[in-house]
Design a protein around this nucleic acid. Structure first.
Length: 422
DNA sequence: TCTGGGGTCCTAGGACCC
DNA sequence: TCTGGGGTCCTAGGACCC
């Protein structure tokens, strides 16, 4: 029995989250900025229309912001994370099986609804999510994930579709694929787009009908799968259980370059501490910690240094992670360099039981586990950083701290910041 | 002056083992 | 002691995603 895939994608997700709690943003050009208010990472349709590109640095678009009175907001991840959860919960009540694909997208299995009017079902999804969460979504329906993504892309652009497109209703996809630029396909990025264009392969139909050996030689099996999926033969299926993480990264760009070791040391301690929280959320431990330092890549002579530390025993204990991260930092640090970004990566991640202990392990593992549990509980209940390690820095103002100058309140996750009715 | 953060998968090549 | 071939594992780098 052929499958029916749908993808539900929240429109301009971060902007839409802000609009739910601040309706004065409706109808206006709005952008949401990345950390340190650096780039525009989410744009309302109005902002797209006046030419603001994805990831455009703010300093390069100041004139547009001023000219069109663009509403500018810092990222508010607590809000977006919470809104995402609400959207996903709503969707899970509407279909038997779904895969959460990203913060603002989910693949659904609509195979059971094939006899119904799928467009109508798509509208029901749209309407329910809008009603329950306030978030507008688009729905793409097709026989494969890749085609569903394409359907969604069309749903967002077309004026007649009103946000729902079903490619199963078409007898032939030829003309749709012909109108689709190759770069708009899921799996074709900047590099491949350029490559195929240089070979005069510009639309999705051309790619679908391309010689299989050629595409395999250029793109490997990913190319073969993409081609199959465009032909309507599914290669990717729904993944219900999120796969265990292979790596956990915590990194930040600094607003101003940092050359002082102690500042970097407390920044790295913070990242280690945050990474430990993520690790414990996965009920996992890590054995390898990589520390990296980057100088400004937009200047000449950009440097990157990575240092790997293999810890004697795999752990999720914050104190240990801070200790070994510090060791990595001492190896990576070079006096006199101006660092723009720093981070850590945890690797060799395994479930936290059983831990492979060494003969020389002197640490009381069960005690440290209880301590971490208490730490996480308190920080979850009282707000993050209620309890923290001194190594992460005691002064409230740190050089490495990320700036959010235009942040909206934590409407949904903080009692002090609930929206009031006036 | 000012340019985000966190992931995945695949492949080629080297190390190592039998 | 020398030699060949094949399998497996690991890693770095490149591509992609949101």
């Amino acid at each position: 029995m052929p499958k029916v895939f749908a993808i539900v994608d929240c429109n301009n997700f971060y902007v839409s989250c802000e609009r739910v709690f601040n309706p004065t943003l409706n109808g206006k050009p709005v952008i949401i900025l990345s950390n340190n208010d650096g780039c525009a990472v989410s744009r309302s349709n109005e902002a797209k229309t006046i030419g603001i590109q994805m990831a455009a640095p703010v300093f390069k678009i100041r004139h547009i912001i001023k000219k069109y009175d663009v509403q500018v907001l810092s990222s508010n991840y607590a809000l977006y994370g919470d809104m995402s959860q609400r959207v996903m919960e709503t969707l899970s009540g509407l279909v038997p099986n779904m895969e959460i694909y990203s913060i603002d997208e989910a693949f659904l299995d609509l195979s059971a609804f094939r006899k119904q009017d799928l467009i109508e079902y798509g509208r029901k999804i749209q309407k329910t999510v809008r009603q329950w969460t306030g978030i507008p979504v688009s729905v793409g329906i097709a026989p494969t994930k890749t085609l569903a993504k394409l359907a969604n892309h069309i749903a967002k652009k077309s004026h007649t579709a009103k946000g729902v497109v079903n490619l199963l209703a078409l007898s032939s996809l030829d003309s749709i694929l012909e109108k689709t630029n190759i770069e708009d396909l899921w799996g074709i990025g900047h590099r491949y787009g350029k490559f195929f264009n240089a070979h005069d392969i510009r639309n999705a139909r051309q790619l679908r009908d391309l010689n299989e050996t050629f595409i395999k030689s250029k793109m490997g099996v990913m190319g073969t799968r993409l081609q199959q999926e465009l032909k309507g033969i599914p290669c990717y299926h729904l993944e219900y259980q999120p796969a265990p993480k292979q790596g956990i990264t915590v990194s930040r760009t600094f607003q101003k370059e940092i050359s002082n070791f102690d500042d970097l040391d407390s920044a790295i301690a913070n990242y280690a501490s945050r990474a430990g929280e993520k690790l414990r959320l996965e009920n996992a431990v890590a054995q390898i910690i990589v520390v990296f330092l980057l100088t400004n890549r937009f200047r000449e002579n950009g440097h990157v240094s990575f240092e790997t530390v293999r810890m004697p025993v795999a752990t999720s204990d914050t104190a240990e992670l801070i200790h070994f991260a510090g060791e990595g930092l001492r190896m990576a640090f070079k006096k006199g360099r101006l660092y723009k970004k720093a981070g850590i990566i945890l690797k060799a991640i395994t479930p936290d039981k059983p831990i492979q202990a060494t003969l020389f392990d002197t640490k009381d593992r069960s005690r440290s586990g209880k301590l971490m549990q208490a730490l996480d509980t308190i920080n979850h209940r009282m707000g993050c950083n209620t309890l923290k390690y001194a190594a992460t820095g005691l002064s409230p103002k740190q050089k490495w701290q990320t700036i959010f100058n235009y942040r909206s309140p934590a409407y949904t996750t903080n009692w002090q910041q609930l929206p009031g009715v006036v």
